[in-house]
Amino acid sequence: MSEKHHVLTRRDFVRAGAGAAVGVSVAGAAWAEQAVATPRASTVVLVRDERALDAAHAVNEAVLAEMLAATAMRVTGAPTAREAWRTLFKPTDVVGLVPTPHLNPTHAEVVAAVRAALVDAGVPDGNIRHAQGDVDRAAACTALVCLPALKAHWLTGIGTVLKNYIMYSGHPSHYHDEDSDRLGEIWLLPQVKGKTRLVLVDALRPLCDKGPQVDPRYLWDYKGLLAGTDPVAVEAVALKIIQAKREAMRGESWPLSPPPTCVAMADRRYGLGTARMTEITIARSGWAADALV
């Protein structure tokens, strides 16, 4: 049976374990076949602070700034936040910020904190742009910061890092359901490829189920930032947090459905990074309670 005509079923996942069966799925665009060589070891930074949100879920901006500084230093190994951001971005860069605008939107405070950190590191404010939406916005940038909020999605399983660039495709509905395996190819569009210097997930108040609209019963105060330079590794850790929260909430097995095959596909087919937890080091910092990973 050809790869193109294989019907992917539950049995494929049961046979191989979730995520392992995705190699049999649909063919991608020709340019996407050129997988990017990436190291098979990645570090994902998780920084949490119990003070990040108050009882009404409002963001404590001073605490957030501390968390962001700690995150940048841990991602780069630089001794100060300013040096960390300078490691990632040059003053001559045109930096596109790519937050998620819907379902569980990226907190505006997170976007503002990243902008402030970039300015502090010497990137002119005029060189920092909102780059979510049309792919022309990405094309106009020399560097991107992927800034999604942590959330599940009813058509793709998880809707965080990889799905954050879906609007760049120009056809978001072409990447839902059975076609969500191909989300990784968007990261290889000529206007996007190689530009993402930092993936920073707003995990202050994630959403662990459903959509297409928010059900607030599935939001919880995690009070974290999750970051790295490998988008697939960051997504893999994000997925682990979501799955662990679901099982803690129900007290029984509650797998994401449909299974989030886009994560393993971004590794295997598109070479965007590693989805294997054995190849990922999680560098934790701060509040440890209910970290879930």
Binding site: V7, T9, R10, S25, W154, L155, D177, E178, S257, P258
Partner: peptide, 15 residues
């Protein structure tokens, strides 16, 4: 089948 898969994943296709 989209709703079925949300409740219980059976197949990516509408089998």
């Amino acid at each position: 089948h989209l709703v079925l898969n949300s409740a219980y994943f059976l197949s990516r296709q509408n089998i």
